[in-house]
Structure formats: C-alpha cells, structure tokens
C-alpha cells in the first residue's frame, strides 16, 4: 500500500506491505536503523520514537497508522557533530555501553521530560498535579519501559537529571 511518512521534518512516500510496522518501515525501507528492534513486542523500549512529540513503541505501531503524524527518530534529535543536550549528557555520563537500547532511551527521555513539564504524574509522584522534582526515583519510574541489559541505569538517570537541569536553567 502507498503511504507517506512525515519523518524528522521530511515527507517520505513509501510502498509497503500493510503488515509493515513503523519500526520495520524505518529500518528496512528507509534505512534509518537508529531505531532499534529489541523484542518486536513492546517489551523493551529499544524502538521508542516520538509521534507528535509523544513517545511510542514503533514496533507496536503499523506504518500506515503513522500517516498524518510527525515522527521524530533518534536521527532527528541530533548528529554526531551536533548532539542534543540529552545526547551530550548520555555521552558525558556514560549512559550506555553497547549502545543498542540508547536511541530508545534518549527518545524516551526526550518525551518523558515533556510529560513532566506538562504536569503528568507517575506511580511514584507525591501528587497528581505536580510540579515534580526530578528525583532518581521519579526518573527511574518513568523510564522503566526502556530496558538496558548493560544496565547503564545509574548513569542514564544521572544524564537525564543533568540535561533537565541545564534546560531548566536555560529557561530561568
């Protein structure tokens, strides 16, 4: 079937099998392999991308469902020579080892910080209406959909806190 994906600010017409997931469309059809396949069942979070700014599992989304939405992948967040603040903090804090879950962690963290800014509570939040302190527990809870077998968790949380503080300081 013919579809068009709006991806990282560019439109991509595609001819795909209707069964094609957004994840496989990215990896197999568009050569955007930054979005990773870890389980194909929405269990690991490695395929996390942003759809209209919200984090989703690309493996649980058919490509045709993504039509008409703005999709941002890791490639759209920064480049090796021009990293986003979160990407830079992941690098500085060693928030990854093998690097396979990393694009998903970074896309997820990007969406997660927006959720906190929008006042969404989590299971460990003290109140339902915020504002929320970026404690270790708050970030760890909200990031638990993204597995990391190298277990860079301690460093990932530190990276996210640092990046978020930088952003808050910029805003202040």
């Amino acid at each position: 079937m013919q579809i068009t994906l709006h991806l990282n600010g560019t439109s991509h017409p595609l001819d795909v099998d209707p069964r094609t997931t957004l994840l496989d469309a990215l990896r197999h059809h568009l050569g955007l392999t930054g979005t990773k396949k870890g389980c194909d069942h929405g269990q690991c979070g490695a395929c996390t991308v942003l759809m209209d700014g919200r984090r989703i599992n690309a493996c649980l989304t058919l490509a045709c469902m993504a039509e008409g939405h703005d999709i941002t992948t890791i490639e759209g967040l920064g480049t090796p020579g021009n990293l986003s603040p979160l990407q830079q903090q992941f690098l500085d804090h060693d928030g990854f080892q093998c690097g396979y879950c990393t694009p998903g962690q970074i896309c997820s963290a990007t969406g997660m910080l927006e959720e906190i800014a929008a006042g969404w509570p989590s299971h460990v939040s003290d109140s339902l209406d915020g504002p929320y302190d970026l404690t270790h527990a708050e970030i760890a809870e909200r990031m638990s959909g993204n597995l990391c077998r190298c277990a860079a968790y301690t460093n990932i949380v530190a990276a996210i806190r640092q990046a978020a503080q930088g952003t808050r300081e910029d805003a202040a």
Binding site: E75, P80, L83, L91, F96
Partner: peptide, 27 residues
C-alpha cells in the same frame, strides 16, 4: 574519557549486525 564511538551510538549512527543495506537484500 568519554567513549570514542559514543557520538555515533547516542545519535543512532553506529551500525549493528542487521543494519547494513546491500542492494537486493532478501529476508
């Protein structure tokens, strides 16, 4: 020191096993 290959990994540009795209690839 930060990882040498770190910028590639955090930007999704490090290419793992299933991530080459030769022409005429079958699955």
């Amino acid at each position: 020191l930060n990882r040498l290959e770190g910028p590639l990994k955090v930007s999704g540009r490090a290419t793992y096993a299933a991530e080459a795209r030769p022409r005429d690839l079958a699955y």
